[in-house]
């Protein structure tokens, strides 16, 4: 672990130096394994956040309070510490940058992490494939990557963002706090007849609901790729 930066009170990005690390594809994850002094091991999957092929491997980890791995990664691990990573793995939840189809990204909470790797990959490659991100998050102050997304919304041509704040909204926000719904997806997403590639990532319940909304709007199931974190949405995959 080379460095770390705080994203929100509950999430931290770890910058890792991994010998002989191959470039990942945007959307892939790694398995992180911690081993205690007594030999006990715990393993979890975390999405890669960083731009493929550049610099350090970055993971953004959200703390699950009763988790075995994430509290260590968010609160305890320090630069200089070492742990095992396996990957990059997972070829399914991956954006193919040769696919010219428009892209719809739907994030619930820390489900933004692999989608951010796609946004960063698009930008780094200078591609103009139109991207739309619909991001469900509790409130502006705990929104992972809020500042970078604000900047990219201004600077990355062809990237559009919409937020569904579920608890607290910014002053003057026109949509009241509430879950992602069909109206917002219709307004901020792509119509199915444009054939978009859809990527949905977040807690299991969120992903189920969002994928069903997309199916209701006639997106074919084989154009909706999903990745579920489990009930509370801390890790990835």
């Amino acid at each position: 672990m080379a460095a770390a930066r705080t994203e929100t009170p509950a999430a931290r990005t770890l910058e890792l130096d991994v010998p002989d690390w191959p470039a990942h594809r945007p959307g892939q994850h790694v398995d992180v394994r911690l081993t205690a002094e007594d030999g006990y091991t715990a393993q979890r999957s975390y999405s890669v956040a960083s731009t493929p092929g550049t610099g350090r491997l970055e993971l953004t980890v959200q703390r699950i309070d009763d988790g075995e791995v994430s509290p260590y990664l968010v609160d305890v691990a320090q630069p200089g510490d070492a742990f095992e990573v396996r990957g990059p793995v997972g070829g399914y939840f991956v954006w193919d940058d040769a696919d010219p189809a428009p892209v719809l990204l739907v994030a619930g909470g820390s489900g933004i992490v692999p989608l951010m790797s796609m946004i960063r990959a698009r930008s780094a490659a200078g591609l103009r494939v139109p991207f739309r991100l619909v991001y469900s998050t509790r409130s502006p102050d705990i929104t992972i990557y809020a500042d970078e997304l604000r900047r990219r919304q201004r600077d990355d041509r062809g990237l559009d963002l919409a937020y569904a704040y579920t608890r607290g909204v910014p002053p003057g926000w026109r949509r009241p706090p509430g879950r992602l719904d069909g109206a917002l997806l219709r307004e901020a997403g792509w119509p199915a007849d444009l054939g978009p590639a859809c990527f949905v990532c977040g807690p299991t319940g969120f992903v189920e609901a969002a994928a069903n909304l997309l199916v209701d709007q006639d997106h074919p199931a084989d154009r909706i790729k999903t990745e579920r974190f489990g009930p509370s949405g801390g890790g990835a995959a």
């Binding site: 994850h29 990957g87 399914y92 299991t204 579920r228």
Partner: peptide, 23 residues
């Protein structure tokens, strides 16, 4: 019981198979 999805299998299966079985 909490559940995730088959993406989670990728690391374990990559130890065994030459192709990514999750796809």
């Amino acid at each position: 019981p909490s559940w995730v999805d088959g993406n989670e299998l990728a690391g374990a299966l990559a130890e065994v198979f030459a192709v990514d079985v999750t796809t």
